[in-house]
């Protein structure tokens, strides 16, 4: 299971995004895709892990705002117990009308992977469960 929370902060014209995945799951997925044997959150973690995470996220997470694909900034990550939390941001959003989210986190390795996406904007909450078969969701305002 992963949880991606997307908050629209009108004053900053920004989507503030946090994504949580289990470290063990992500390690399995990365090694599966990259044909490596890296370890995460141990003393053996590669030095360029930030770059690896950024690459992985850019391939598996996408945000389409008002019909155009917008790149996100990778702010960083931190480990919280057995999870890794990613902080991402999409800025300069004017006149938010709809967001489409594509989320394929961990779906290559895990058959039963559930990716939960929660969106909060204009005081409205909406949440979706995406999986291997259905990796996109759309919310209109």
């Amino acid at each position: 299971m992963s949880i991606t929370q997307i908050n629209f902060v009108a004053e900053q014209k920004a989507l503030q995004i946090t994504s949580r995945v289990f470290i063990d799951d992500l390690q399995t997925e990365l090694n599966d895709r990259l044909k490596t044997e890296i370890e995460l959150a141990t003393e053996r973690e590669p030095k360029n892990i930030g770059k690896i995470y950024q690459d992985y996220l850019s391939k598996n997470l996408a945000f389409i705002v008002n019909d155009s694909l917008v790149p996100f900034q990778y702010i960083g990550s931190e480990y919280q117990n057995d999870q890794v939390v990613f902080y991402l941001e999409v800025t300069a959003i004017s006149n938010l009308k709809k967001i489409e989210i594509s989320n394929q986190l961990l779906t290559q390795t895990f058959d039963e992977q559930n990716n939960i996406v929660k969106v909060n904007a204009f005081n409205k909450n909406k949440s979706f469960i995406l999986d291997n078969r259905n990796s996109k969701c759309l919310i209109k305002f």
Partner: peptide, 20 residues
């Protein structure tokens, strides 16, 4: 020890989509 079973640990599940 990170038990994963404390009240704070269940929040992400409880705020999930009600249909699930």
């Amino acid at each position: 020890f990170n038990t994963g079973n404390l009240p704070k640990d269940i929040i992400p599940y409880m705020t999930g989509d009600q249909s699930n």
